[in-house]
Each structure stands twice: as C-alpha cells, then as structure tokens.
Nucleic acid binder design. Structure first.
Lengths: 220, 220
DNA sequence: TAGATTGTTAATCGATTAACAATC
DNA sequence: TAGATTGTTAATCGATTAACAATC
C-alpha cells in the first residue's frame, strides 16, 4: 500500500514524534516486533488510533504479525523528514538562545546550529560551545549564503515579527518561535511555536482545578 | 450567570492564555471594550468560539455592548489562577535549567524560582542571577520546608521519572517537564510537558510537507 | 424604542473508537 | 490450515460553527 495523498490532520502529526520516541526505546531493549495492541498498552493511545494514524501514510504492518520496530522507526523518521540534516540559526543570544545553542540533543538528531545573532555589542564575537555570536546586521546575508533551513526566534516580544520577516526574506523554510507573541509568516514557510508562558499558565489552571475539586469532595 | 461546574475541555484551557495576551495588548492601547466579532478579527478564532469559550466560566459580556477589556482580563487571569504567587524550584541546572532560572518573564508574572538543584559538584554553591544552585540531596527537605508549588524538571531523560517521584513525594502541586521523555505523576499533581524535540520534529514535517506540495504543483 | 451583541441551543464537522473483512 | 492482527469502513463522540431568542 502506497502512502496516501490526503491532508493529514495536525493531531496525527503531533503524535508521530511520540511514536518515534517509544520505538527508539523498544529498539534499545532489542524488541523486534510489536502489535498495535501491545503498542497501545505502552504508549497510551488506543490500538485503533495507532493503526488509523499509521495508515495515513501507508500499510507498514503485516496481518497476523504486527509491525517491525526497526521498520516502523525508519518509516516515521522519514515521514518527519529526520533522514537529513537541517541548518539552523538562533536570533537573540540571551538566556534562552544560549541554552538552545548549547543543547546537544538537537545536534545529535541532525539539527545543527550554524550561528547565533544578537544586537548587543558585548555578546558579538563571543562563542557558545563553538557557535559564534554574530552581529544581527549580517543575518540576512549569512542565511542566504549558507542556505540556512530554520530560524529560531529567541528575541523579545517587540522584535519577533521583524526578525521573522527578515528570516523569511532571507529564505528560511521554517521558523521556530520562542518569543511570547504570535507572529505571521508567508504560507511557504512552516511555523512552530513554543509559548512557555502559555504552558505555565495552563499548568497553573490545572493545579487550581485539582485543588478546587479536592475541596469540593471534602465538603460532600 | 455564575461559573459553570462541568468539566472544561483542554482545548478551551489552552486558548485562555492566548485570550489573555491579546487583552493585555488591548489594554496597552487603551481599548476599553471589545465585541466577540472584533476580537475574532484580531485573534483569529471565530466569534462563536470566543463566546462559547467564555461562557464555560460565566457570562462576562453584556448584550448589545460586548466585553469590558479590563474586566475580561481580570476574569481570565483569575480563572488561570494568575492572581497569586507560585514558588518554583528547578531540578537540573544545565543549560536549559539555567536559562529558565534567568528568564525574568515568569518572575514578573508571579512565578518565582526559589532555588535550583543539581548533582554536579562544580555547580553546587554557585548562583544564577541570585538563584542558588543547591545539592540535589537536600531537594525534598527544601521543597517541604518552603512549601514549593511547582517543580521544573530539566534533568536528562534517564533521571526524569525519579526526580518527578521525589518532587511529588515532597508535595509539589504541579510539575513542568522539559525532559524529552514521558513521566507519570499522581492524579493530585498537575503535569505540563514541553517536548522541545517533538516540537522541532513537527516543524521538520511541515517544512517537508510544504516543499512536497510545491514540487507537486510545479509538476501539475 | 431600535440596534447591537450576547448567551445558548441546534447543526455541522472532524477526530476517535469500534467492528470486521482481508490476509499474512 | 487456524490464529492473529492488520487495514479499512462504519459508528460514536466531542469540538466547532451557525442560528437565533434574550436582553442590554
């Protein structure tokens, strides 16, 4: 069965990296095959959903047998586009930008930080574990010349859109936005957002919600 | 209309911080009232969804008028539990832990980092912009004694569950997990996860998807 | 009062789950 | 072959959107 052509819902895409993580664990343990039922017990999605999700891309399983762990791992990696390298730049070399530059986890997976950019003279010229911090003035030229794929936005809220515009103009294919604001990009550029504040606020809600329920049950 | 009691779906909760951000912007601009239709044009949700979302918690609007920006901001802040302070500790003072410790954005919103913990002797005793790095051995006692609300997990994958267990044992009400793995917590503890790798993989997928569509259209 | 806009019910849409025929 | 498990269609569930009566 060949891969389907219909639009895949974002809910499905968001689950793929998680499937892949569990497959890595299974590979480490030497597990060679897994049924959707066994996978369900492990990962917490229903067996039906697992089969449904995978069949969006092709028939990777074998009736009466299950799925090859190694095979499925490679299929999902390919679907996500993890079988190649990506060149990234970080814009804004503050605390968060520096942390991401130094985080080796991404590097190992083929996401390479080529340079960081900042406006602050005291930062320009210094390096972060081998990654140079350059003057933001040269960013567009650098991105063009080095065919950078992804721009990581770690500047503050007020400059995020401007930086995004420049990155898109310079030709990045994707933007990873950490600034606590919403930005707009042309439709040919992919956008992924990490809103840390929003995440923390959501946590606060759930903490208070649990608290409230506890008090209510105590009263009943 | 009093606040409803039914279970609010997570999709609604995830939108609340975003409503709040736009309300802050409106306040800054001196806007005093907004209709669901105007809000829709701004934030990109349908007017119907906005009214539906807000009415999960109460009737905050006024027929024929709209919503008070200031009033709605306070209501949503209260719903999220942002009208109080939270005490947090960071476990794992590596790059990411340090970045979060130094990130003043959270501090301003009432989320205070009280201390960071690590196992590495070279880090213990040093400080991050006024936040001490302490020996992980003393973590449980510290969390209990200081009534810490939130534990932020920035250790590596292999130690994440163990750290979570300790934090829960010590009595935190919420856990914010940055380790690239899934962890389990008791039902009386809230859990919010930030999977940076998953987010990056999702970005890679969308980049490749856009690329593929472009090639396909070129062929047609 | 007339116009505007909410709060809420009903309709639609999409995503998840269940069922089962196909097949290894 | 018999048993197991997929791939896929059908049923259900939940979330979003549309419609409109209530009311400021």
């Amino acid at each position: 069965m060949a891969a389907k052509n219909a639009k895949i819902s974002n809910a499905v895409i968001k689950r793929l990296p998680r499937y892949r993580r569990y497959l890595i664990e299974l590979k480490k343990k030497g597990v060679e095959k897994i049924s959707s039922k066994e996978f369900s017990a492990l990962i917490g999605y229903t067996a039906s959903q697992i089969r449904q999700d995978l069949n969006n891309f092709g028939g990777f399983g074998q009736q009466g047998y299950g799925y090859s762990v190694e095979g499925l791992y490679h299929e999902i990696s390919a679907i996500l586009g993890l079988d190649r390298e990506y060149r990234m730049v970080i814009v804004g070399a503050g605390n968060l930008g520096q942390a991401i530059a130094k985080y080796t986890h991404f590097h190992k997976q083929g996401f390479k930080v080529w340079a960081a950019f900042d406006i602050k003279p005291s930062l320009i010229g210094t390096d972060l574990d081998g990654i140079e911090i350059l003057d933001h003035e040269g960013m567009v030229e650098y991105v063009e010349k080095n065919a950078i794929d992804i721009g990581i936005i770690c500047v503050n809220q007020d400059n995020a859109q401007e930086v995004a515009d420049k990155l898109c103009f310079a030709g990045v294919k994707g933007i990873w936005n950490f600034a606590p604001t919403d930005i707009e990009v042309p439709s040919h550029v992919a956008l992924e957002v990490v809103h840390l504040s929003d995440s923390l606020h959501s946590l606060a809600y759930h903490m208070n919600d649990i608290q409230k329920k506890g008090e209510k049950n105590a009263k009943d």
